[in-house]
């Protein structure tokens, strides 16, 4: 990474491409947001609506990282920034995903019956 510190500003066409990057980020985010809300308001089956919301959220987060936080995923980025994001995401996946899995599993076993509970619960119903 060379840094010729010439004291000159970047050319204006660079500015134009940066304005475009924000504009694209805004339009894409807006469309994804509208899509997520529409999925709820339309009478989709709730599983499909939730899948749509998750995909829209993921895409929008990537858009924000690229267009607003200017993290580049294909080189050209200070390596530590990207590594830190990836490390945080993997920590999150372990901690948040693990918490959610354990708690929902526990909830399932304690309240509506897990695998063992199911049989016991199913009996009186039939």
């Amino acid at each position: 990474m060379t840094k010729p510190n010439t004291g000159e500003l970047d050319p204006q066409d660079n500015a134009a491409s940066e304005v475009r990057s924000y504009a694209i980020g805004f339009i894409v985010s807006l469309l994804l947001t509208v899509g997520a809300f529409a999925a709820v308001l339309a009478d989709l089956p709730s599983t499909w609506a939730i899948i749509c919301i998750c995909i829209a959220a993921l895409l929008q987060i990537i858009t924000h990282l690229r267009n607003f936080l200017h993290l580049s995923f294909s080189g050209g980025q200070s390596r530590e920034d990207l590594l830190l994001v990836l490390f945080s995401v993997s920590l999150l996946a372990i901690m948040a995903g693990g918490t959610w899995y354990i708690m929902s599993d526990l909830g399932g076993r304690m309240h509506d019956g897990g695998e063992a509970g199911h049989a016991a619960h199913a009996m009186p119903d039939r």
């Binding site: 990474m1 010729p4 010439t6 940066e18 200017h70 200070s78």
Partner: peptide, 16 residues
């Protein structure tokens, strides 16, 4: 090269 590389998150100020 310096136009495309980011040193830190966010819009970089640039060499200028």
């Amino acid at each position: 090269m310096s136009n495309n590389s980011n040193l830190y998150p966010g819009l970089n100020l640039g060499d200028g």
